[in-house]
Amino acid sequence: MLRIEGLTAEIDGKEILKGIDLEVPTGEVHAIMGPNGSGKSTLSYVLSGREGYEVTGGSATLDGVDILAMEPEERAAAGLFLAFQYPVELPGVGNVTFLRTALNAIRKGRGESELDAMQFLKLARERMKALSMPEDMLKRGVNVGFSGGEKKRNEILQMALLQPSMAILDETDSGLDIDALKIVSDGVNAMRGPNFSALVITHYQRLLDYIVPDRVHVLMQGRIVKSGGPELAQELEAQGYGAVQNAA
């Protein structure tokens, strides 16, 4: 379970998160919606420990453990995964090398044995097939020259390989065509179960038709201003954020 209480954070001395309270019980998928610049990505970076995002107050725990005190790689080992809004290119680093290094790092952190090249390839091919990703994407540099949609699919592939217990998906649906949206959603749904939770950041209600959330939260100006069931997303789609703001 991810529990966030009174979380405040700033970038370059500017307060962005102004007191976030949020709980994602294990096994649930929650959605976060909110206008551009409201602090959605900031929240995902603060939770995953990015440099420059300074926590000024509050707490965040994953299964009771304080994650804010950990290094980013320790948070990853603890089961936290972030699908980036803008996946990063690593020129010259083969995707297969990266994926295997990452998986083995996580496995090591969990006290599991490392996979050799053959074992890994078998697993990667399996997962790629499920995501309809062409195999040659393994050979290419990490995200280098990938189309927007391919980058997003590569994020989901990583999630499928690393098997996190808590995934934050930051606008993974943006830039996906209709078929890809369905494939990616299937990828996320396949992970759903009693030991997996997710925080899905999106601007579009459409994604939530495929990944039906347990709860929907509205983030505005650094605060959760409203929470509700899946119907809240539909309300927002129909009325925009103005209505929520006025009501809040």
Binding site: S48, P72, E73, L90, V93, F98, T101, A105, I106
Partner: peptide, 25 residues
């Protein structure tokens, strides 16, 4: 910084991340 963070989010230590990026270079 975003390259390092990306690698570390995937479980690599600082040193492993630098090593990987330099080897890629």
């Amino acid at each position: 910084e975003d390259q390092l963070f990306y690698c570390r989010q995937r479980g690599l230590t600082q040193e492993e991340a630098v090593g990987l990026i330099v080897n890629g270079f």
